[in-house]
Simulated assay, not measured.
Amino acid sequence: MGILGWIILGLIAGAIAKAITPGRDPGGILVTMLLGIVGAVLGGFLGSALLGVGLGGFFSLSTWLLAIVGSVIVLAIYHLVRSRGHRAHG
């Protein structure tokens, strides 16, 4: 899958992750898109490294699940970092 495929996958996975992650999202649509792309890459890396699951093509279920899980992880970390920053300044 090329870079354009990763970007599209990340955008969609980020939107899905935002929809299933509880709480108010501290970032806007641009932040969500970037986090989705990072999450898709992270999910692919973790799937390969920890589970031995190779990434399939764009339409592979394992690719989508790994991208969504990666996006949820990145979004959760972002929520933690942002909430700590607000408490420290609030």
Rank of each mutant, 00 (worst) to 15 (best):
L46Y: 02
V38N: 11
I73L: 10
L55W: 15
A67V: 04
G43P: 00
S71M: 12
L50N: 12
A67M: 04
V53N: 13
F59Y: 11
S62K: 14
W64F: 13
L55V: 12
S48I: 15
V53Y: 09
S48T: 15
G44A: 04
A49E: 14
L50C: 07
S62D: 12
L51K: 02
V41T: 13
V69A: 13
S62N: 10
L61K: 10
G44L: 08
V53T: 14
G39H: 02
G56R: 05
G70T: 07
L65I: 13
G39L: 00
G52W: 05
L55M: 11
L61E: 12
G52Q: 03
L46Q: 00
L50R: 05
W64Q: 11
T63I: 06
T63C: 07
V72P: 07
V72L: 01
S48M: 15
F58Y: 09
S48N: 15
S48E: 15
L61A: 10
A67S: 03
F59E: 14
V53K: 10
L65C: 12
V69M: 10
L65N: 10
T63R: 02
V74C: 13
S60Q: 12
G43H: 02
I68G: 00
G44Q: 01
A67E: 00
L66Y: 05
V74Y: 12
V74P: 09
L55K: 07
G52N: 08
S71Q: 07
L66W: 05
V72R: 08
G44N: 02
A49Q: 11
G44I: 06
V38K: 14
A40T: 01
F58S: 03
S62F: 10
S60I: 15
G70Y: 05
G56Q: 01
G56P: 06
G44T: 03
T63P: 01
G47W: 02
G56N: 04
V53H: 07
V41C: 11
A40Y: 02
G56C: 02
I73H: 06
G47S: 04
A40D: 02
G47I: 00
G70L: 00
F45S: 14
L66I: 09
I68R: 01
L51E: 08
S62C: 12
V38T: 04
G52S: 07
G39M: 04
A40L: 08
S60C: 10
S62T: 15
